[in-house]
Write a protein that binds this DNA or RNA. Structure first.
Lengths: 149, 149
DNA sequence: TGTACTTAGTCAGGATACCTGACGATCAGG
DNA sequence: CCTGATCGTCAGGTATCCTGACTAAGTACA
């Protein structure tokens, strides 16, 4: 009855996989005690990491506007996962860094993410999973190199 | 400088690929004369297809609420791509079907989608592309069979 | 040194795609 | 004929994006 997804356009497959994964992650985060971290925020926390980062660089890295990134960052700051420090070499800019709480959360969330990925891996086999992952990453790299020109 | 995506969690890769593809599709639809069709709507049109469909079934197929689906359908109807007919065997239900205009649009959009997919195919090679596509579909199938239980 | 361009970040406002909850109408099974 | 499921809708809310306009600050160069 449910038409097999091989027939679906790639966009539909990607969309549904992404939504499915996001749902599972949200569940995992809630179970793990982080009901206030949303998926996109997690990417940001991950990217800020140990080294800190600047908002504009993050926006570029995730291919979104400064405004959208700004909102994610505001929320993360309000929740106490992220702090802002003046950039001594540029008075316009602020350097983002994880708070201690943010560091703990990032590490635990990373493990939740890995658990989900391990489950996915087991569903279609490790080698096939990793090949798929690599191919997707390669595709993305190509797309970002030469957009549509 | 841009950290390679192989290191990114799967969710991030999927999300960015999906966004990238969606952007390209929107561009293609605009160039093709369908500036008022959005990506999610396209899936719906495609699913309604030649045979027609009912809203509740579509919602189930795309794993979303009837309300959300209802909104997509409303918009498609308002734009003249979709019509509703009374289901003779169930007075609650309406059967959705493509209008003539909807049929033309669906066919042309399908070609736009295919052009994009062919481009993707050329970026990482046909066999690798198709393997990836199959693996993703398989993964999705597994996920939908046994959710998280 | 001043002028022009670029860049960092914010404010305001809006579109899209989802959701939950509640509801009226209808169907289907005992 | 009652009970519970199902079809679709209304109302209202949230998350994640966007465009456009703006201030403040850096950068380059004649």
């Amino acid at each position: 009855m449910p038409i097999p997804h091989v027939a679906d356009p790639l966009g539909v497959i990607l969309l549904r996989l992404q939504r499915s994964l996001e749902r599972e992650l949200i569940q995992g985060l809630q179970a793990g005690g982080y009901p206030d971290i949303r998926m996109r925020q997690l990417s940001v926390l991950d990217a800020v990491g140990a080294d800190g980062a600047k908002a504009a660089a993050l926006a570029a890295r995730f291919d979104m506007t400064k405004q959208s990134m700004g909102e994610l960052i505001d929320d993360l700051e309000r929740s106490g996962y992220l702090g802002r420090a003046q950039d001594p070499s540029d008075r316009r800019a602020r350097i983002l860094e994880l708070t201690p709480r943010g560091k703990v959360a990032t590490e635990q969330c990373r493990q939740i993410v890995q658990a989900i990925e391990r489950r996915y891996e087991s569903l279609i086999g490790a080698s096939r999973y990793h090949e798929t992952r690599m191919s997707l990453a390669a595709l993305l790299e190509h797309l970002e190199d030469g957009p549509v020109s």
